[in-house]
Amino acid sequence: MRVSSTDLLQRYQRWRRVAEPGFWIALTLMQASVNSSLAWLDLQRAGIDTAFWEVAVWEWSSNLVLLALVPVLVLAERYRPLHLVFQRQNLRWHLAASVVYSLVHVAAMVALRKIAYWSQDSDYDFGDWWRELPYEYMKDVRAYFLVLLAVGFYRLLLMRWQGEATLLGEPDEGPPVEPVQQPERFLVRKLGKDFLLPALEIEWIQAWGNYVNLHVRGHDYPLRSTMAAIEHRLDGKRFVRVHRSYIVNLDFVQSIVPLESGDARASLSTGGEVPVSRRYRDALKSTC
């Protein structure tokens, strides 16, 4: 029996919480196993007598820490989407974050190796920290951005699978049945079918390159538009700009939590959270 794209999407959504971490776990297991074997064989070919367990400890300690850091990178990609990385401000943010990422990775990796060596009545020496840290950072910054690319590409594919939104245009004949400048509904094409998405159900809108994402009940529907253009098309009493990359529906805002940086975080009644920059924080408070 042929399975439709809609059925596949529904099945995947049920298993998504297992599939996403499962992918990273499987990738880590495969990478650590293959790298351990290859590294040990290279040492043997070079005439360096090293026990296999030592090589395995080196590879597994590094990969397990990287695996534990994947959720942090997923959050970083959501907070600063990769398509904005190459803007100066966000590039600086991600480069600074990659330094912290590398320091955490190295510190945790060395700690695991020392514990493993101690269990074998041996001692692990990381070497000269000032010489090794730059080398480790060169590898970590590559891993940092590769994970961001993978997460961003996956999110884009998932959005395309879930559906794409368009603005309702002027009818070919007769007057429009509802306002076109401030639409009450968006037309969403999802897996070959069209349906109307009420504007009031949009929780927040996020910039995404040449698109903006309409977030509704856990789903993101990409709409080809800029933030400035969509902001002018929405009801200003209900939809408020809270960040250069976010517009939020005030009907869903439950609380505003200030942060030490001067920015804030808007918690929504649906359980989601939206960043609020200090530039827009006071304006948001005055409207709530």
Rank of each mutant, 00 (worst) to 15 (best):
A51T: 03
V99E: 00
L38V: 15
V147W: 07
F52Q: 10
P275Q: 08
A283R: 12
A199Y: 03
S4C: 01
P275M: 03
T50H: 13
L268P: 05
K190D: 09
V212T: 09
H219W: 08
S225G: 14
T166A: 15
R241D: 09
A96W: 02
P134E: 00
S5C: 02
R16I: 02
Y221E: 01
V70T: 14
Y135H: 10
V141M: 00
M1K: 13
I48T: 13
T287K: 15
L66T: 04
L168R: 14
Q206C: 11
R45K: 13
R155N: 12
N213Q: 10
L27W: 07
R78D: 10
D49R: 14
R88K: 12
A51V: 00
T226A: 06
R80T: 09
V74T: 01
R2L: 04
D282A: 12
E260T: 13
G272S: 09
T6A: 15
S119G: 10
E170P: 00
G174R: 14
A26F: 03
A229P: 05
N63T: 05
F186D: 03
V276N: 07
W40L: 04
S277H: 08
L223N: 10
T6D: 10
R80G: 04
F252I: 06
Y12W: 10
S33F: 14
W161D: 08
L67R: 06
V257P: 00
M227K: 06
V55A: 07
T270E: 07
S62Q: 13
M1F: 09
W15S: 14
T6V: 14
R160K: 12
N210P: 02
Q254A: 11
R244S: 00
V253D: 10
Y154M: 01
N63E: 08
W58E: 02
R241M: 09
W93K: 15
L156R: 12
R92I: 14
V104Q: 11
A228N: 13
A19L: 11
E77G: 11
D140F: 09
H219I: 10
N249W: 06
K190A: 14
R16K: 15
V276S: 05
Y101K: 09
V104D: 08
L73I: 13
N90C: 09
K237D: 13
A68F: 01
V180S: 08
G22C: 07
L284W: 03
G262H: 04
N35W: 10
V55W: 06
G209M: 02
Y124S: 05
H94W: 05
A199T: 15
L250G: 03
R11G: 15
V55P: 07
V99M: 04
R17L: 07
L27S: 11
F252P: 08
T287N: 10
G218Q: 00
L69D: 05
N213W: 06
S122K: 01
P175W: 02
L67S: 00
